[in-house]
């Protein structure tokens, strides 16, 4: 059974205006969850978050995004454990290196017939692998700023804005049952501003951090079943 759930998070215009002026840029985000199988997790289970970075991809998912999702999951008040990408790849080397990493569940099923790999995954207690792909891009900028300095001092005058957009997808595999159990997509976009009257005041839209937080929350909810 497939359940498609849409969750849209749109800040109220007034709040956005206030936040824009006093704290930072606005971020709009949405998350889609596609469930293809049942989940459940216990305190004995471990989750690993991996970047789906192939040798042929045009872009790689940012290392700090992968780490952020892993850390957020690990810090959450959840009963399961989270192992870092680096530790998992070292302990299962060379099976998850870019050249040999399984791209689909059926490739993983074939690989895991290797008893040494199966044994190591069991030893690590890994129940779920979360593969993440996607990036955050700068999608445009506008405005201008002029800075001048003289003997007595100086300053800047102008207004610059730029927009970032992120799109990430997490594919979740149950490696105990050898099945792909769902996908979570996270989109976020935001505009950052930097007005300057003498001193530039950056108001940054934390697009990637927002996408990370949303993704981690949804993964946690998804795994809980």
């Amino acid at each position: 059974m497939q359940i498609l759930k849409n969750i849209a998070m749109r800040p109220l215009a007034f709040c956005a205006l206030i936040l824009t002026i006093f704290l930072g840029g606005c971020v709009n985000s949405s998350v889609q969850v596609l469930r293809e199988g049942s989940t459940g997790i216990s305190g004995q289970d471990t989750v690993v978050v991996l970047g789906k970075n192939l040798q042929t991809a045009d872009h790689e998912t940012e290392i700090d995004y992968i780490d952020c999702v892993g850390r957020s999951l690990g810090n959450a008040k959840t009963p399961f454990q989270v192992i870092s990408q680096e530790t998992f790849k070292d302990r299962t080397f060379p099976w998850f290196e870019p050249r040999f990493a399984p791209r689909e569940m059926r490739e993983f099923s074939a690989q895991v017939d290797e008893p040494l790999l199966r044994g190591r995954i069991e030893e690590l207690g890994v129940r779920y692998i979360v593969w993440i792909e996607g990036t955050t891009e700068n999608t445009g900028s506008s405005g201008g700023m002029t800075c001048a300095w003289a003997g007595a001092g100086g300053g800047c005058f102008g207004f610059v804005s730029w927009e970032n957009s992120s799109e990430y997808e997490a594919s979740i595999w149950d490696v105990r049952e050898n099945v792909a159990i769902g996908k979570i997509s996270s989109q976020a976009s935001g505009t950052s501003f930097m007005p300057a009257i003498v001193v530039p005041v950056p108001m940054i839209a934390r697009v990637q951090a927002n996408a990370c937080g949303n993704m981690a929350d949804q993964i946690e909810e998804f795994l809980a079943g």
């Binding site: 080397f93 060379p94 290196e97 870019p98 050249r99 040999f100």
Partner: peptide
């Protein structure tokens, strides 16, 4: 470092 890991992976596999 990735190339050296790739070399090790290729030789081992």
């Amino acid at each position: 470092r990735t190339a050296l890991r790739d070399a090790s992976a290729l030789i081992a596999r």
